[in-house]
């Protein structure tokens, strides 16, 4: 039986404009509707979370002005004062230390992995970032307690106090316990390092080979080529990586909780204990029912975390889509 050489008897010739919906069309419509509603549900989840937090936190803002909460330094829930400045400052300091340490090193490492290594070497180095990225936060916390806290107490704090601390009092503390902003920053920097490295590498790898070859053809060194690929072509991706790293550092809970000391005051030096917003929420969940407004105060802290993360992400998105005309739908 050959179908080629005779005019084929076609069993169906579907009408271009169907008069009634076929079974397949029904499937297609139902699939469209169901899948679209799931995609909307993802947006709905974020809206719902924001809504819940705003509703709960709103109660506190009715009793106290926003400025008293943000700038107040007294955190005494039993007396009804909910000044959260120590937590804001603690969170910002810890995040800043982590970003300052991790971002330059991670971007350099990403460039190295993408531009300098041979496939063989990369096979050896890639598990390094993958393993680090996969480690649970609580394991980082254990490592922090066992390694970083003693390191800060016995090595970093004394050295800093003896040298640069002479000029900058903020870096001088001869009696550091080790549980400090510095320790939390160090632990966090190792946590966000693999995230930024991996994304930087992927972004650079996606830069067209032609661009690289064109630069090499002009006699550029590898580093000069990397500057073009990383800080021109790959910039949007690297910015996105840094924002993700920031979000992770800003909101990390358990790992920070275990090494930051949890002292609710504005830390006088980097080697003193501090407290973060996420730690505040995590540590007080057990007792929050007994004190009036306490739960609302904790929800305000959660709302603050949410607001910062949303504004950072949306801000970056707007910057990248408007300014550089990339991103968004990609």
């Amino acid at each position: 039986m050959s179908l080629l050489h005779e005019s084929v008897q076609r069993s169906v010739r579907p009408a271009l404009v169907p008069r009634r919906w076929h079974w397949r069309t029904w499937q297609d419509r139902v699939g469209h509707w169901a899948m679209a509603s799931l995609a909307w549900a993802i947006i709905g989840l974020l809206v719902a979370i924001t809504g819940v937090l705003v509703l709960r936190a709103g109660g506190l803002l009715q009793v106290y002005p926003l400025s008293a909460i943000v700038f107040g330094v007294q955190w005494q829930p039993l007396r009804g004062t909910f000044g959260m400045a120590p937590f804001f400052v603690g969170t910002l300091l810890v995040t800043a230390v982590a970003m300052l340490l991790a971002v330059p090193l991670a971007i350099l490492s990403g460039i190295y992995l993408a531009e300098y290594t041979r496939p063989r070497t990369r096979l050896l180095l890639k598990p390094l970032t993958d393993l680090l990225a996969g480690m649970p936060p609580v394991v980082y916390g254990v490592w922090g307690v066992l390694v970083i806290v003693p390191l800060v107490r016995d090595v970093i704090a004394p050295i800093s106090t003896g040298t640069i601390g002479m000029l900058v009092p903020f870096l001088s503390n001869p009696r550091s316990s080790g549980y400090s902003v510095m320790a939390a920053g160090l632990v966090l920097s190792l946590m966000i390092f693999p995230i930024i490295t991996a994304i930087t590498e992927e972004v650079l790898r996606a830069v067209p080979r032609e661009l690289r070859e064109a630069a090499f053809a002009l006699g550029a060194t590898r580093w000069e080529v990397s500057q073009i690929t990383a800080f021109r072509a790959g910039l949007p991706g690297i910015i996105a990586a840094v924002v993700l790293g920031f979000s992770r550092a800003f909101g990390e809970t358990l790992a920070v909780l275990m090494v930051v000391g949890n002292i609710p005051r504005i830390p006088p030096t980097l080697f003193d204990g501090s407290y973060t917003l996420s730690g505040l929420i995590a540590n007080n969940y057990g007792e929050m029912m007994s004190v009036p407004l306490y739960e609302r105060a904790l929800m305000t802290a959660a709302l603050a975390l949410l607001a910062v993360v949303i504004s950072f992400n949306v801000g970056t998105w707007l910057f990248l889509t408007r300014r550089l005309q990339i991103g968004g739908s990609q």
Binding site: R13, P14, A15, L16, V17, P18, R24, T25, D28
Partner: peptide, 20 residues
């Protein structure tokens, strides 16, 4: 047109066009 039907007319089932 495919024969005398416009494949870009509104209401046309794109899947049917590509089937034929």
């Amino acid at each position: 047109l495919l024969d005398d039907e416009d494949i870009y007319a509104p209401g046309v089932d794109v899947a049917a066009v590509r089937t034929r």
